[in-house]
């Protein structure tokens, strides 16, 4: 019976619940990615400054976010802030805040790296043409940096999407948790449920991440042709 247990996928109630979980996953990931990219661009440009007043706080921020696992940040913001400061943010708000900060730190470093990787003569030539600093960034450096940025930032976006299952520890029911609820509720009557539900979730994650990858490939192709 190679397909036994597959009926769990054809129950409309199960699919509706997976759909609700999927909406939660996509909503949190999408809002976080937008904030991460916006703040990351701004912080990344600021981080090009060699001043100690910029570099010391920037490195502290970046390393703190990178070294401490996301799950610890989630616990700190959700449980720690509620206990110490009385901030009773909802799980979803906490998730968006933590993922946005994490994403912004990673994005900032990608932006900083891609701009500083541009050859120095680009800036020198622009200066020789009489462009102001702000014009150099706006018309010369950032457009080129964005192209270099695309593969890495798509990677960051999919990482944010794939980290959403951690949110279950701050009481959020996202798509993977719904899947586990469905599997466990059937543990005695449908031992194959895990295979089918995880199989469907595999497809769902693919369907979320694949369009982003396609979009990035299109943009790269379009810009490299120019």
């Amino acid at each position: 019976m190679p397909f036994s247990g597959a009926e769990i996928l054809f129950d409309p109630a199960n699919l509706a619940r997976l759909g609700e979980g999927l909406i939660v996953t996509v909503r949190i990931a999408a809002i976080s990615i937008v904030f991460a990219f916006l703040f990351g661009m701004v912080i990344g440009v600021i981080a090009l400054s060699r001043s100690g007043f910029v570099q010391i706080p920037y490195q502290l921020f970046l390393q703190a976010i990178r070294i401490v696992p996301q799950i610890v940040w989630l616990f700190l913001f959700f449980f720690g802030f509620a206990r110490l400061l009385g901030w009773n943010w909802s799980g979803e708000t906490t998730g968006i805040v933590v993922f946005s900060i994490w994403g912004a730190a990673e994005m900032a470093d990608l932006v900083r790296a891609s701009i500083s990787s541009l050859p120095a003569h680009q800036t020198q030539s622009a200066l020789a043409l009489g462009l102001a600093r702000s014009q150099i960034y706006l018309h010369v450096l950032i457009p080129q940096a964005v192209r270099r940025l695309i593969p890495a930032s798509i990677n960051l976006a999919t990482r944010i999407i794939k980290t959403t299952p951690l949110l279950v520890l701050i009481t959020i029911v996202e798509v993977l948790k719904v899947g586990q609820q469905l599997i466990e509720a059937k543990i005695l009557t449908n031992p194959a449920a895990a295979f089918w539900i995880y199989g469907l979730i595999f497809v769902i994650y693919f369907l979320i991440c694949f369009p982003i990858a396609v979009l990035s490939r299109r943009l790269e192709a379009k810009w490299s042709a120019q």
Binding site: F75, F78, F79, G80, A82, R83, N88, V168, L169, I170, T171, I172, V173, K177
Partner: peptide, 17 residues
């Protein structure tokens, strides 16, 4: 009802959630 996991039962109480 708040969903809990074995790892966060104590924290849910300590944080007053």
């Amino acid at each position: 009802f708040t969903l809990t996991e074995p790892a966060n039962r104590v924290d849910l109480l300590e944080s007053g959630r």
